[in-house]
């Protein structure tokens, strides 16, 4: 069985306990959650919950059916990887103790369209958004400078065009 990564977008009732219910269902049915993002949606009272999971097709089908059974879950979509727009926000704090570090980091930030949101003697803090792979590359480049802290939201996603 091949374990593929899936982006599942759900519309759920925006009330306490729903996240717990969805997360515990996925866990119970043997699905590993890579990330979950939750926020308000275009419909009042409903939230969009996007999660990235790994698992084989049969398990995925079962999980989607089980999710449908939760009364608080209104809609579920397994987003087609060919037409998915994935974006993630990452905050990263990097050391600037080495000589010339700061200018080099600012150069990389420029290329990756990262925004500098805080600077102090030893550190520079940036925010960067984009698809998770872009963020991975950015962080890879920053690693030699010494990364102090990373906070990533995990990707949220939406289908492209009319999909």
């Amino acid at each position: 069985m091949s374990e593929k990564s899936h982006v599942i977008s759900t519309l759920v009732e925006h009330k306490p306990g729903v996240l717990q219910n969805v997360a515990s269902l996925l866990n119970r049915r043997g699905f590993n959650i890579d990330s979950i993002t939750v926020g308000t949606s275009e419909v009042e009272g409903l939230a969009r919950m996007v999660f990235v999971v790994k698992g084989d097709e049969k398990v995925l089908e079962q999980v989607i059916k089980q999710l449908h059974k939760l009364v608080d879950v209104v809609k579920i979509k397994d987003l087609d990887p060919d037409y998915v727009l994935k974006r993630e926000l990452c905050l990263v704090k990097v050391k600037t103790t080495r000589e010339k570090s700061r200018s080099e980091i600012i150069e990389y930030a420029d290329i990756f369209k990262a925004k500098i949101i805080d600077v102090c003697d030893d550190f520079i803090t940036m925010e960067v958004t984009g698809n998770p792979e872009k963020i991975d590359s950015f962080l890879r480049l920053l690693k030699p400078f010494g990364i102090k802290k990373i906070a990533r939201t995990g990707p949220t996603a939406i289908a492209r065009g009319h999909h």
């Binding site: 306990g17 717990q20 219910n21 515990s24 269902l25 059974k69 009364v71 608080d72």
Partner: peptide, 11 residues
């Protein structure tokens, strides 16, 4: 009890 029974209730 809501948390405890979550996996064994419909709602």
């Amino acid at each position: 009890i809501m948390g405890i029974t979550m996996p064994i209730t419909k709602h």
